[in-house]
Amino acid sequence: MSTPGVRLPLADEVVARLREAVASGRWAVGAKIPSEPELIAEFGVSRGTLREAVKALAHAGLFEVLRGDGTYVRATSEISGTAQRVYREHADEDVLQVRFALDTQAARLAAGAADAAVVEVLRALLLQRRESWDAGDYEAWSSADWEFHLRIAEASGNTLLHELYESFGDVFHGTKMVQRLEAGFDGCLAAGHEELLEAIEAGDGDAAVRTVIANLDYCMGWMPGR
């Protein structure tokens, strides 16, 4: 005898549909979601139910509701939205210390899992990083550098680690990285980058961890007050 399925509360169903619209790329980060009347018609729910669902996702950091303007997508998932909000509430040094844990584990796992195709993508990103730095294009440099680290996390094969790492986004690497662009800062340090790629290509997890730590120690030295 089968057990009939339990139907989710209507607001939870709407939350799931809103979440899927973001996850599928229908609404990109930074985009404004459709108006209340449009969503009410699409989902076939009341204004109160829709607002309850939007409020839940805003609380989770996925959405931001701007009174008199609309609702915007601020993260790709609740875990990313919550993490970004939490990271903003802590000092740069605290955030960087968390990256020690994530970067080292991502590097070790990637050294045992990355294939030739991944290595080539990483090599191209490092070339882009170098060319952007030499040209003084710091926005492109930061973007290439972050994409390199994000690809390492993806190459680890651990989807949760990758999602946690991705949640740093602009909170750490964008805004906070640019604040350290002072005279003497080496934006193309080989440690944690070219040396890391060599270790990954060689399948040497221990060497990968060592060079990541060297890079993050260097970054720590450029924190304000150091």
Results as ranks from 00 to 15, higher is better:
residue 3 T to N: 14
residue 5 G to R: 04
residue 6 V to I: 02
residue 8 L to W: 02
residue 8 L to V: 04
residue 9 P to N: 00
residue 10 L to P: 04
residue 11 A to W: 04
residue 12 D to W: 06
residue 12 D to Q: 06
residue 14 V to M: 02
residue 14 V to N: 04
residue 14 V to E: 08
residue 14 V to F: 02
residue 19 R to M: 12
residue 19 R to A: 11
residue 20 E to M: 11
residue 21 A to K: 01
residue 21 A to H: 06
residue 24 S to A: 14
residue 24 S to K: 10
residue 24 S to C: 14
residue 30 G to L: 04
residue 30 G to V: 01
residue 31 A to S: 13
residue 34 P to R: 00
residue 36 E to Q: 07
residue 36 E to A: 12
residue 37 P to S: 11
residue 38 E to L: 07
residue 39 L to H: 03
residue 43 F to W: 03
residue 44 G to N: 07
residue 44 G to I: 02
residue 45 V to N: 00
residue 48 G to W: 13
residue 49 T to G: 00
residue 51 R to V: 08
residue 56 A to P: 01
residue 56 A to W: 03
residue 57 L to A: 04
residue 57 L to S: 09
residue 59 H to R: 06
residue 59 H to Q: 08
residue 59 H to S: 08
residue 59 H to P: 00
residue 60 A to N: 02
residue 67 R to K: 07
residue 67 R to D: 08
residue 68 G to D: 05
residue 69 D to N: 06
residue 70 G to R: 03
residue 71 T to A: 15
residue 71 T to Q: 13
residue 71 T to Y: 09
residue 72 Y to Q: 06
residue 72 Y to V: 12
residue 74 R to D: 08
residue 76 T to D: 10
residue 79 I to T: 07
residue 80 S to G: 14
residue 81 G to R: 08
residue 82 T to V: 03
residue 85 R to W: 04
residue 85 R to E: 04
residue 89 E to W: 10
residue 91 A to K: 15
residue 92 D to A: 14
residue 92 D to T: 14
residue 93 E to N: 14
residue 93 E to I: 15
residue 93 E to R: 15
residue 96 L to I: 11
residue 97 Q to A: 15
residue 98 V to H: 10
residue 100 F to I: 09
residue 101 A to S: 12
residue 102 L to A: 10
residue 103 D to H: 09
residue 105 Q to H: 14
residue 105 Q to L: 09
residue 107 A to Y: 03
residue 110 A to L: 01
residue 111 A to F: 00
residue 115 D to G: 09
residue 117 A to W: 02
residue 117 A to D: 05
residue 119 V to P: 01
residue 120 E to Y: 00
residue 121 V to H: 02
residue 121 V to I: 11
residue 121 V to E: 12
residue 122 L to K: 01
residue 123 R to N: 07
residue 124 A to W: 00
residue 124 A to C: 05
residue 127 L to A: 12
residue 127 L to N: 12
residue 128 Q to W: 02
residue 128 Q to T: 15
residue 129 R to D: 14
residue 129 R to V: 02
residue 130 R to S: 09
residue 131 E to F: 06
residue 138 Y to N: 08
residue 141 W to A: 13
residue 142 S to C: 11
residue 144 A to W: 15
residue 145 D to V: 08
residue 150 L to K: 15
residue 153 A to L: 05
residue 155 A to V: 12
residue 156 S to M: 10
residue 163 E to N: 03
residue 163 E to W: 01
residue 165 Y to S: 08
residue 167 S to L: 05
residue 167 S to G: 13
residue 168 F to A: 15
residue 169 G to M: 08
residue 172 F to Q: 13
residue 172 F to V: 08
residue 174 G to I: 00
residue 176 K to E: 04
residue 178 V to L: 14
residue 179 Q to S: 13
residue 181 L to Y: 13
residue 182 E to Q: 11
residue 182 E to I: 09
residue 183 A to Y: 05
residue 186 D to S: 04
residue 186 D to C: 02
residue 190 A to H: 07
residue 194 E to H: 12
residue 195 E to W: 06
residue 196 L to D: 10
residue 196 L to F: 11
residue 197 L to N: 10
residue 198 E to L: 09
residue 201 E to L: 01
residue 201 E to P: 01
residue 201 E to N: 04
residue 202 A to S: 07
residue 204 D to A: 01
residue 205 G to M: 00
residue 206 D to V: 01
residue 209 V to Y: 10
residue 212 V to S: 09
residue 213 I to L: 10
residue 215 N to F: 09
residue 215 N to I: 07
residue 216 L to K: 04
residue 217 D to F: 09
residue 218 Y to I: 06
residue 219 C to G: 09
residue 220 M to T: 13
residue 220 M to G: 08
